[in-house]
Amino acid sequence: MRPFEYARPSDLAQALAAAGPDTVFIAGGTTVVDLMRLDVLAPRRLVGLGDVAELRRTELDGDPVRLGAGVTMAEAAALPLVRERYPALAAAIDLAASAQIRNVATLGGNLLQKTRCPYFRDASSPCGRRRPGDACSALTGHLEQRAVLGASPHCVAPYPGDMAVALVALEASVEAATAAKVVTVQVADLFREPGDAPHKETVLGDGDIITAVLLPAPRGTSAFVKLRDRASFAFAAASAAVSLELDHDRVVAARIALGGVATRPWRSSEAESAVSGERLTPERAFAAGEAAFEAVARTHENRRGIALGARAVTAALLACRGG
């Protein structure tokens, strides 16, 4: 780790003013400290957001529901409102990381977590996401879990998180403060595909701070399914979040998002079309999973991602049906 100065602003205005070159904000720190120790992040200044009260502002009785970005994942998942009305979100948080990490990681920090691509995490490997202009090492190397959807010749690293996937299916937004104003961005629009600039991960500027997650009133039911090699404490090999409006067993409207298999939380209009207006049978749920990857050419490298991504969608749809 390189030496750095530490600042601890006491309000949002001070925090925004502290932004600058070689400066990194730190909330729970579970990503930032990890990457600093790997020499992947090497800020000269670290700005702690722990005392910024605005980031804790939560309004459960509004529409949308507002969860402060500085609320921890454990606190959010424990809210009865979240558990009852947004089951996909509760499940996505419950299945993320470990209890210890959920106790400190914040909602805002979780959304902005970095990819787990081992080349990104290895400071000695070229990586365009880490160093603009570098070639993608994973493209020629071994990345078992390469993004099947949204990849470019410059980056094939999957977005690792679970919560953002659920938020996309729930059509949630984030509120962010910039130096000039407060903006609201749909979570579905927050993340960029790598294209030829993989280092630009979100539509936010470097000095902006996510201040809240905004949840619209739920429509219908929702579910989140996470597939991985072991039963717990692992990133998703594939995940799917589904929010469904059902009329008995007929799908009136579907919002389906995938994780672990795409460069950003991925909303699949193909999967949604495959079930919309249809009876939600196992066959239909299976077809929806396949539809999400219809446009993807099968290769040896993406076989695992496609198989698990498709089945995650199927399982999440069936979970909405109640089994």
Binding site: S125, T140, H142, L143, E144, D229, R230, A231
Partner: peptide
């Protein structure tokens, strides 16, 4: 779950830490 991934192109092991090399958890 246990396997050491190999990058043949760059001639190295990949993902050797406990975040990538999965061993059994309580839940397994």
């Amino acid at each position: 779950m246990e396997q050491l991934h190999v990058d043949k192109e760059h001639g190295r092991f990949m993902g050797v830490d406990l975040g990538s090399y999965h061993i059994l958890t309580h839940a397994d």
